[in-house]
Design a protein around this nucleic acid. Structure first.
Lengths: 134, 134
DNA sequence: TATTATTATATCAATGCTCGATATAATGAA
DNA sequence: TTCATTATATCGAGCATTGATATAATAATA
């Protein structure tokens, strides 16, 4: 418990963040464990990259509870056989639930880390669309 | 593991969020376990409220590692004796580390929950100050 | 006076999650 | 032949949450 070490906090944050990231990647198309990790490395600039020790158990659980469907892929080139995961309708619903949970929490995260006024996502989205309309 | 239940995600998010909230409350002044919980209920509109089963162990660990100092308070009115916690310099450093960890992660949270462009905190702060200058 | 609500701290079992280490395996390139 | 890359999988240690349970003092109410 070394609270002045950023890694401690990163790890703590990732507990809540890894699973929605996996669902996010799968919502963009079928993928396999190793590929999901590569994708995560890319879209988070290496900021939120779980280990294999967490990614594979997550995929196993998602499969077991019907959030994804798995299919063996005998690829023509490259190494090992792959296990490709596809998001089910239930899985998409789970992703949307997660998005809502995060959306409702983020204003309070701002309140905890910024001294500014409370910022709501709706507000941010309005500003963004104003910007793109210019 | 009921991923279509918002509570599941809330709970997951809180794992990473509770500890920085406690430090945030203490950064505003000394407080005791029960009081911190009341404060959390208030500042997060009931959105992020841990149980006593997590708040007291956290306070114990913070004390053990020197992030807070504890002092018994024989209050004049009211019920039980209180244990009042004060943030140490080390504790303030921990809070600042946590803030930085969250700041660097938030853009990627947006990326996972919004279809909009990547939003950076700096950007948001600029927009806010533009607003207040109007 | 007796009961209830509020204030307040604390522990425990069950459950779930991360990390890092370790193992296995196939293939292309040097 | 050796090394790097691609790929999946498991395990223990450590840590965190929830919900239940216990204890205790005092103010207010009936």
């Amino acid at each position: 418990m070394e609270l002045t070490n950023p890694d401690y906090w990163k790890s703590l944050i990732n507990i809540g963040f890894t699973k929605i990231l996996v669902l996010k990647v799968l919502s963009c198309g079928p993928n396999h464990g190793y590929g999901i990790l590569r994708e995560l490395k890319s879209i988070t600039d290496g900021c939120c990259v779980p280990t294999f020790g967490s990614i594979y158990p997550i995929l196993k659980e998602l499969t077991k509870h019907g959030y994804v469907e798995v299919k063996e892929d005998k690829q023509l080139k490259g190494a090992q056989k792959r296990r490709v995961y596809t998001l089910t309708e239930q899985g998409l619903k789970a992703y949307e639930t997660a998005v809502e949970a995060w959306r409702s929490t983020i204003p309070y995260i701002y309140k905890a880390i910024e001294n500014n006024e409370l910022i709501f996502l709706e507000d941010i989205k309005t500003r963004l669309s104003n910007k793109s309309n210019k």
